[in-house]
Design a protein around this nucleic acid. Structure first.
Length: 218
DNA sequence: AGGACGATTAACT
DNA sequence: GTTAATCGTCCTG
């Protein structure tokens, strides 16, 4: 099956994917809960890449002045307004792609920005694409997209169908004591209260790496 | 038509 | 700590 040169005990065959119902909740709830789940990328005719999500932010709707939904339904943010469980992928700063997971009920534009992960499968491929030291491979939203070859082709992609090329698997449970909650980052010209809402969720550095080492029987 | 700016990153002082 | 890179999107007029 796998073309990896050495087995990795934490790499498993597909488990049940996170379902439409999973995403059909508030963005804040989903942003917290997806920590530790596994983001899986199947590249057509190529390899299978994956990693455990370590950081996410919630964008709750049109009233949230930090959200792209603040301008209403536009061509770019169209995926946000659709069915939950799809990807919203956008281009910014003239060079970077960002991955969001559409949440909330159909018609309400909630989204969760995936800001970081700990790589699992496809590490060699990711290293080639990033050409950086391991800690800096996927510790940012644009780095993660570069690593997994996520771009505009995946905008609107359905994460909850069998043929999905991008989806989530259950991963490891992250206890509250291992999560740091704070304001979202990179927001400019965003007024209060939106600027300071504690909608960024991050797994404490080291927690997942330690856990993964134990699981792989080190 | 023009301009401001961006849910970032890497390099630099 | 600061700043350049780089261009699509959305606003104003």
């Amino acid at each position: 099956m796998s073309s990896r040169s050495h087995p990795h005990p934490t790499t498993q065959a597909d488990r049940p994917r996170l379902s439409r119902d999973y995403f059909a909740r508030s963005a804040v709830e989903v942003a917290r809960e997806i920590l530790g789940t596994k983001l899986v990328r199947l590249e057509p005719g190529r390899s299978r890449l994956s990693g455990w999500i370590t950081e996410a932010e919630a964008y709750i709707g049109p009233e949230d002045l930090a959200s792209h939904a603040r301008h209403g339904h536009t061509d770019r943010n169209s995926a946000m307004w659709g069915e939950p469980g799809h990807a919203y992928v956008y281009f910014t700063y003239g060079m970077h792609w960002m991955l969001n997971l559409v949440t909330e009920v159909d018609g309400r534009p909630g989204a969760v920005l995936v800001r970081g992960m700990l790589p699992d499968e496809g590490l060699e491929t990711i290293r080639k694409r990033r050409n950086r030291p391991d800690p800096q491979l996927t510790d940012g939203p644009a780095k993660l997209c570069q690593s997994l070859a996520i771009d505009g082709n995946l905008d609107g992609h359905d994460l909850c169908v069998p043929e999905a090329e991008l989806y989530l698997n259950p991963g490891v449970e992250i206890p509250d004591r291992a999560v740091t909650i704070g304001p979202r980052v990179g927001l400019n010209h965003v007024p209060e209260p939106w600027l300071s809402q504690p909608w960024r969720f991050r797994v404490n550095p080291g927690f997942l790496t330690d856990l993964v080492e134990k699981e792989s029987g080190a």
